[in-house]
Nucleic acid binder design. Sequence first.
DNA 1: CTAAGCCTTACAGCAACAGGAAGGTCAAGG
DNA 2: CCTTGACCTTCCTGTTGCTGTAAGGCTTAG
Lengths: 141, 141
Amino acid sequence: MNISEAAKLSGLPAKTIRYYESIDLISPPRRAANGYRCYEADDIASLCFLRQARQFGFNIDQCRLLLDLYKNPQRRSAEVHQLVSDKLEEVDAHIRELADTRELLAKLVGACANDDDADCAIIDRLASPQEQSQEREGSQQ
Amino acid sequence: MNISEAAKLSGLPAKTIRYYESIDLISPPRRAANGYRCYEADDIASLCFLRQARQFGFNIDQCRLLLDLYKNPQRRSAEVHQLVSDKLEEVDAHIRELADTRELLAKLVGACANDDDADCAIIDRLASPQEQSQEREGSQQ
DNA sequence: CTAAGCCTTACAGCAACAGGAAGGTCAAGG
DNA sequence: CCTTGACCTTCCTGTTGCTGTAAGGCTTAG
């Protein structure tokens, strides 16, 4: 099956499939006599798996690990569980961070007169020489 | 004042200050005879403003607009309000998206046996040929 | 013969910087 | 005077996960 067919079935753009091959996320498929890539059912399964994993927010390296586990019948579910738990925490941290930002933004929006005047609490706040808040907990990226 | 001093006072890395100059976010400062950049108090104020805006999650283009408003005494606070309201919505949308992902991940974690067995609900779920969910609402980036 | 619709490779670009190389400058110490 | 170290300069590369574009080959229909 050609790449466009694989793209249709997997839900990934052909470009992305080639990209995944270029970074060794998937193994290069067989080539037809004319040089075209030929995909098998197994390949499609991997691509679908990757699409789903990406939708769940896993990055490429995490997908690499997941895919290894997926393909490995000797896996222990605990390993998978660990990976996904880590991801969950990661997402939680991200949400907390965004929620903080959200609250700050809401305060700004509430404080601004929202009229034709030049006076603006938002500008004042952003211009105020706020301390360079050293983040209070470990610096995770 | 040299760039390292400006960096210290503004809380931005010198690299970032040069970068902001290179993308015309800030105007190039005066140069000393030896070619070193010389920053004035006004420049520092702008840099602090930018640092704060970035911390609030505004991207560079949004910072550009904010900075214009900041420097323009003829601004109307309503314009600022609009910008920040938009950003708030943007952040809200992002949070909702992440919250969805979070719930899905939590379900996965809950469903996995988390033991030495190869059988794994997470793997099964990711491998299942889930429909390629066409996003139900406008595709904003 | 030509046009379309596939396919191939390779390179550029996005955001927002960070890291490092290669070299000039400046102040202090011996 | 020379060296050392801490600045400064520019330029290039790498990051993440692709997407867009160019330039060309294959295949099939009209």
